[in-house]
Design a binder for these strands. Structure first.
Lengths: 206, 206, 206, 206
DNA sequence: GATGAATGAGTCTTCATTCAT
DNA sequence: CATGAATGAAGACTCATTCAT
């Protein structure tokens, strides 16, 4: 039963509960550290029943990763040529930060996969991801050539955006441990900081 | 037998080989995904012999983490009040980037620990680490008040430095997958980028 | 639902398909190695539906074995007192060989059962089978006493017939592996060989 | 620990006990029907300890089959050109029968493997085994051409010898169920029968 | 200091079977 | 008649750890 789309209501529900529980576990324990027991418990299902919906531990993990990359690229894809370059990039930063706020577990799942050497998504990295980065880097270079943006390596600029925004999801406990606890309000502070920060760094130097 | 200091030469060597192998394994597999077999194989020792040096899997992991935090803070600790604030911070960025180049496994070990919720080092985070961040944030705030630095939240600034520099260690395979392969030369490009980038962002706005 | 006779056409068909698929699986995997999944797949039914027709794995196996013994004895039963003894026995050999050609899976099912110690059909062996062998052995002894057949232990003679003829079903892959592939033509060669062979061995020595 | 030859005394002993127990189980239950629990119990070891000696269920089975084919071919290999052809073949028959008496479990293991389609030893069948059969068939043909042996297909003759002799191992429970119980004495009767039988069938017809 | 031997507790997965619809 | 859903028990195999030598 790992075909196409789920059919019945129960299937849809259980599949969703499994993926949700699996996201919890994989994103914190990593693939090797996760156990089906934890996932089954989290989903409120017996282990064999869980395996009735997904044939293996790997299948669950694969399913989670499958949709991830595309969702992950959406904010960058949405960066457009028209409009002010600096604001276009700042908007991208803020969209990406929003992803970290809304989907922190997905971010950590992704981070775990990369830390392990990306055994399952290397293809997507050197494929879709690299292509998109190449394309957007060219766009940024155009802006820079036009003097609308400070000169700097576009790829490393993109890396910096990923790093600074994902940090708030991946290193969440550290961030919270250092900032005196304030719920999720630090995301607003982060947004303010990052917007200022990137505006400062990106504005063309005279 | 993880008391005091190792005695004989063989003991010192084996302890070192175990920690080195363990660093390989824990940093890529995470704690749960790592096995003593992998570590023993990497160290060229039998599993029982490995447990002669460290009483348990947890003991090896703990030993690795123990020294880590201090080493990790050194570059920040070295940030001094005297000298030009912008350059002082840029120097810190570059020191930190160097850490990622020289100790990528340590960086990944740390990232893994945080991703898992920092169960073993939460104390150090809300202790030494927070204290140091508080202290250096105050220093940065002083500089800002003196108009020597653009105004921005000092803690989030520090987060951004951690994020952008550790990215080159933690997301190494992604970075290499996107940049067309060029050995370790991208660290130089990263240094140039980050120096420019931070100078641009930090210089006081008129 | 393994009572009386099947009722509807669909029931008859499905029962037949199940038994056919089960014969495939049990005869090659043995009882323990067979799974209901394999059988259900072979029959084109869902597992629960399969268990609607037969209450258990054991029930299917039992049903298969039940009819088997009688069919298996028919060729021997057909051996008659009248006619030439040598040709009567040769005719039995050829009938038995035909069984191996037409019902190789049944032969292998039987062989599997015996290899496992005949846990389910020991009763039939020491009952019907032994009785029939006793009866036909007496007949053969009569022929031998009359000088119409070379003297030899009648029971071991019967064993030899079973062995040589069933070999072509039970060790089919070995036979085909040694003879260079030639479809099913080797059964004709086997018939010629066995007829000659038994005539030579059985004819009274002067 | 499935390398080369066992080293220590304990290893030798346990390896032997495992293989002995495994032979019991595989030869009656087939590969799929056998469980490591049964084998471990038979060997007087815990299951993990058993897997310390052989890495997997398949490894035990492979080890058992590995030596088998060669041992199985020895009696045929020993058939020599010199001496009386009929007696040479009869001697082969009796050697082969002896194998069934002394190594009945090995015979059943082999039979099980063939019944399942020889998935693991097909290579040896179409290799060594076929080569040897080709060679000895040529020898038999020579004898027949010289008028020292009745004319008949040599390969089917060899099949008949395998069939009649292995029958006493593979169908042991059936043989014993039909013959009124008499310990192992029926092997002597079988030897007498088969010697007579093959002499009668093989002697050249006038 | 080092290794062979052993194991209890898990971990993933399969299987025969049941139940509700 | 038939299938989706569920499961307890077992099966193969792994793992951290222990013990004796």
């Amino acid at each position: 039963m790992n075909d196409a789309a789920p059919q019945t209501r129960i299937q849809r529900e259980n599949t969703a509960r499994i993926l949700d529980a699996a996201l919890d576990v994989f994103s914190t324990q990593g693939y090797g550290g996760a156990t089906l027991d934890q996932i089954a418990r989290g989903a409120g299902l017996s282990k064999p029943n869980l395996l009735y919906y997904f044939n293996s531990k790997a299948a669950i993990h694969t399913t989670l990763l499958a949709g991830l990359m595309q969702t992950w690229l959406d904010p960058l894809r949405a960066m457009r040529r028209d409009g002010d370059p600096v604001e276009e990039i700042v908007a991208y930063v803020l969209r990406k930060l929003d992803m970290s706020r809304i989907y922190p577990r997905e971010s950590r799942l992704f981070a775990n996969e990369i830390l392990q050497g990306a055994p399952r998504i290397m293809g997507q990295i050197t494929g879709d991801l690299r292509d998109l980065v190449d394309e957007k880097s060219a766009l940024i270079a155009t802006w820079q050539a036009a003097g609308q943006l400070a000169a700097m390596d576009p790829r490393h600029l993109i890396f910096s955006i990923w790093a600074t925004t994902q940090h708030y999801a991946d290193f969440d406990v550290q961030v919270r441990g250092i900032l005196h606890p304030e719920g999720d309000r630090h995301f607003d502070a982060a947004a303010v900081f990052l917007a200022d920060f990137y505006r400062g760094a990106l504005r063309p130097r005279v």
